[in-house]
Amino acid sequence: MIKVEGLFKEFKLNRKQQQENGTSEAIYRAVDDVSFECKPGRIFSLLGPNGAGKTTTLRMISTMIQPTRGKIEICGIDVAKKPNEARKKIGFLTGSTGLYERLTPDEVLKYFADLNDVSKADFERRKEQYYTLLDMHHFKSKKIGQLSTGMKQKVSITRTMIHDPEVVVFDEPTSGLDVITAENIITLIRNCREQNKTVIFSSHILTEVDLLCDDLAIITKGKLLYNDTMNAFRNQMKAETLTGEFIRIVNEA
């Protein structure tokens, strides 16, 4: 369960950044009073154009950055008060997540399992489970730098799930990936729902959103424009297509 209440994130801009952004304001509000809830066993999609505030919101949820104001709870844990407790509940994956190129998949997984206090037995069991599921046995001892993009993404998926997180955060997880690799991610997201995990993912690919999500929020310029179920979204559509409706909502804002 993720609960976000009155979330704000402001960044200080230096003069150069002000010039680049064409503003004289010294503060840039990336997230502006955002509230929503993501429930277990459901996939929540955060949809918005580039620079809308999706990544900033997900980074706050995953404790990478702190909100300027507002509250985030992960499985009932206040992330501001107990960030490490909250982190144990979170798995985080993006399409551009890096891996340690000089280590092997085995070593990377062990590292993150140790950081997450995963017992040896659980680590071995989950590792085996994902190695079999994603057909990873043949490259588990190769250095990551020698692996293909698809293989690396399989390692990233296993790394995300090695501590069996209750909440999984995907920030544009298929961005820049080929169709086959992206399909692995889509399967992972579906599996998470089946395992009653809370899933939040950001995207600007509407077909992906249509395919996967149960609940939807649309964000632009840091503000939440829409927050309801996917079915409710479909029912209230004024445009003929999802893309058309998305553009209409964003343009009206």
């Binding site: 990478m64 960030p83 490490n84 982190r87 993006t94 997540t97 890096g98 340690y100 993150f112 997450n116």
Partner: peptide, 14 residues
């Protein structure tokens, strides 16, 4: 540069 810092920052370690 490698993009591994994000993963580390979301791990339960301060």
């Amino acid at each position: 540069e490698r993009g591994t810092i994000e993963t580390l920052l979301t791990s339960p370690v301060n």
